[in-house]
């Protein structure tokens, strides 16, 4: 209920803003508004589709041309999903459980590591820090696929194949998160840290008691980013998990929809699983959207 209330409040707020602005707009602004609204609707379509698709009965799933809206909603796909995997001795709940464990571990790890990495980059002028930061920025641009083989070698020699560590360690570094956090920490005045130092704070206390509380919006943002990265990660399952029992939900969904396993019956299951994967992202984003947008506006990314 609290969640719903919060959503309602924020919607009411944006609507009243929207209305009051509308009157004082000139032609260009109205044109831009229309354009952006159209764009937003366009971007929204896949979401609408995912929602409706999951509730379509079998014959609606294969309609041509495909429809956006479901006509006779059913929960059949979800029951199918629960039963689909019984023949392999691995219920879908096992994948969901794996996903939750991996996502929790990774998210916590990414956030802590990001903060620990960003703090010295922002507030301690050690020699070579510009180079380190440059390398981190550069790594944002390198696509994950290119790192598959080296990662495989590292994971293999660490002996963490088929363990949760094999899921978590490869994705633990989140360069975008470090970047965001550093931009925010840069803005914390040095005097604040100096005052705390004179008050007797250690480096650790400076970070935990002064810096982190001030950069909460950024922390919220990278928590979401981390969550999404970890929750939607199917790569580590594909590369490092030969044991099916260690694989995660996104991998399972991919295998359902991939060409190899493609059967007519599984389309419905895949649609339901997609929705399950998508839901946490949506909920988290709606809850924290204002903080996130604040972050984007601050960091100059928007």
């Amino acid at each position: 209920m609290a969640v719903l209330n919060k959503m309602r409040q924020s919607m009411a707020r944006s609507w009243s803003l929207y209305r009051s602005d509308f009157r004082s707009m000139d032609k260009t602004q109205i044109f831009l508004l229309l354009l952006l609204t159209l764009l937003a609707v366009f971007m929204l379509l896949p979401l609408v589709f995912i929602f409706n698709h999951a509730f379509k009965p079998l014959h609606e799933l294969f309609l041509f041309p495909p429809t956006f809206f479901v006509r006779q909603p059913t929960l059949q796909n979800f029951t199918d999903l629960l039963q689909a995997t019984q023949d392999t001795f691995l219920p879908v709940t096992r994948f969901i459980f794996n996903s939750i464990v991996v996502t929790l571990l990774s998210t916590v790890g990414m956030v802590i590591l990001g903060a620990l990495c960003a703090y010295p980059l922002a507030k301690h002028p050690f020699p070579g820090r510009k180079i380190v930061f440059g390398v981190i920025l550069l790594s944002i641009m390198i696509s994950v696929e290119t790192m598959g083989i080296p990662r495989y070698i590292v994971v293999k020699s660490l002996g963490i194949m088929n363990t949760y560590w094999g899921h978590v360690l490869p994705i633990l570094a989140l360069p975008v998160g470090v970047f965001l956090l550093k931009q925010f920490m840069d803005q914390v005045p040095d005097e604040l840290l100096e005052a705390a130092k004179l008050d007797g704070a250690t480096e650790w206390q400076l970070l935990v008691r002064i810096i982190l509380p001030i950069v909460t919006p950024a922390m919220a943002t990278i928590t979401i980013l981390s969550f999404q990265t970890a929750w939607s990660n199917s790569e580590t399952s594909a590369l490092f998990m030969q044991d099916d029992a260690m694989k995660t939900l996104p991998f399972y969904v991919e295998s359902l929809t991939s060409n190899l396993a493609n059967t007519v019956a599984r389309q419905g299951v895949a649609a339901a699983a997609s929705l399950i994967i998508f839901m946490p992202n949506l909920i988290i984003f709606l809850l924290s959207q204002r903080k996130v947008i604040q972050t984007m506006a601050h960091s100059g990314i928007k």
Partner: peptide, 27 residues
């Protein structure tokens, strides 16, 4: 600095924005 037993007042006050006045003083 923390072992010099010194306290300092800064030009821009440097109060911890996330803490109440009480907590600022008690920190």
């Amino acid at each position: 600095p923390k072992d010099r037993d010194i306290s300092m007042v800064f030009q821009n006050y440097a109060l911890y924005p996330n803490m109440s006045v009480y907590e600022n003083i008690a920190f």
